[in-house]
Design a protein around this nucleic acid. Structure first.
Lengths: 249, 249
DNA sequence: TTCTTGATACGAACACTGTTCGTTACGAAC
DNA sequence: GTTCGTAACGAACAGTGTTCGTATCAAGAA
């Protein structure tokens, strides 16, 4: 897609600089920076080390340059995060719209978003603060909105549904990314190990609570921590879909 | 509630320091710091200047001391934010549970949370990253969970409902706080001014989009930006409540 | 070909951030 | 009256986003 990763390593060996050349720098080889390259590098750092590690300096270092060089291609860090986020949204695959199966398609869409956002864990933490203005935000928005309008929902109400569904998708991903972040911070290796450790920790804490003040929480701890992330996501999704269905003319 | 704001000003006049005392500082008056005082100050800064302005140094400055002094009462900034958040949740008023009216009570609860979180705008931005472990998180959780179980919902499913409803409440507040943050950053004074400026900006942008790629978005811009924050919140809330109702035995 | 121009790269610096270290000074217990 | 744990705190460290001024290049103009 992006054609900017050429000229990184030249096969020709660099000619040693003549000593009489008065240039201070031994070999100030100009890198070919570009927005695409910077965004791609940012995403790589984000996936590998998390949002906290994603600084302008870190990205610059990855490109063998200084932080100031990035500002020629990116207004500021906020814009970089938006670009990274939209790049991730680009991985969302959309089917042909079929209004007759709007509920199935909406469910499949939500699960696809879930998949993509959980693949690039920390990106959601940078996403909830955004107004949908990127290329791919628009693309997915058009899909959902068009699907609902074609299915017969009044445009005004379809707008509300789009808004609330999007909030749910990003909100859930955000919550998930917090856990990923903690998993990274801890010394656990596998997600399962983290999950069980986390669950028992919460369970122990709840069990130690005063039973007279929190009778229901203490009584049903096991039920409270039973479901994993995906089951929670699916349940909330069905709640929303059923609510929408009951409003569909 | 918190009994820690005494001894701030003593009636006795401070005795002048004898010149032969080798102490460098003229009058190193010790402040009486405490966790409550720090949390309260943090909340005050948060409300007045937003989350970005809430630094350890800012809080310390407000208390006429250095940042290091805070660490005797608060483990780190993250803990401070959790404490501030839970303090805000303490403002949530809960009624007597009445399982027969569970839907009304759940709606009223959600609106109460909406009110409190929007009152302290930026706190939501510090909240979504939290596991519900504070005093008041538990208090509200016990209320909602107890209400649903008493209304007849299986404990396992009630846990899922509690989880999803909480996510919705915090997620929406987070989104709102982002707008508050932008309102603060801009030079607008009234929220209405910001709202209309923002709406027209989005509308103009959408109108300029290629109609062949985004036909539905371009066609129905006015519908897309019609609803304000509270209307959106209420709509999503009703979606969830109806979904829950259809699952209630 | 030479000169000019406009954009890009980038070193250095600024004003911040959260946090830690080592020291000081106090209130209370012995 | 002395000791002692602990709260307060000055200074510093390592890191952040961002800006300024300068150096360097590719390409267009004379």
């Amino acid at each position: 897609m992006s054609s900017t990763v050429f000229a990184m390593g030249s096969k020709e060996e660099a000619v040693p600089v003549p000593p009489w050349r008065k240039s201070r720098k031994p070999a100030p080889i100009r890198r070919q920076l570009s927005q695409d390259l910077i965004v791609e590098t940012g995403l790589r750092v984000l996936d590998a080390e998390g949002l906290d590690a994603l600084s302008m300096r870190r990205v610059a270092q990855e490109l063998d340059t200084g932080p100031a060089s990035l500002y020629a291609h990116v207004a500021n860090k906020e814009e970089l995060l938006e670009l990274v986020y939209d790049r991730v949204l680009g991985e969302i695959r959309l089917p042909e719209r079929d209004p007759g199966r709007w509920k199935d398609q909406l469910r499949a869409y939500a699960l696809e978003v879930y998949r993509v956002l959980n693949k690039h864990a920390d990106v959601a933490r940078a996403a909830l603060a955004n107004i949908p203005t990127g290329e791919n935000s628009l693309r997915t928005g058009e899909f959902v909105y068009g699907l609902m309008v074609e299915a017969g929902m009044p445009p005004r109400e379809a707008a509300l549904c789009l808004d609330r569904l999007s909030l749910y998708l990003i909100g859930d991903a955000y919550e998930g990314s917090v856990h990923i972040s903690r998993l990274r911070a801890s010394d656990m290796s596998t997600p399962e190990e983290y999950f069980t450790a986390f669950a028992t920790q919460i369970a122990d804490y709840y069990r130690a609570l005063p039973r007279d003040r929190f009778p229901y929480l203490v009584e049903h701890i096991d039920d409270l921590i039973a479901a994993d992330g995906e089951e929670r996501f699916r349940y909330g999704l069905e709640l929303l879909l059923d609510g929408i269905e009951s409003r569909m003319p």
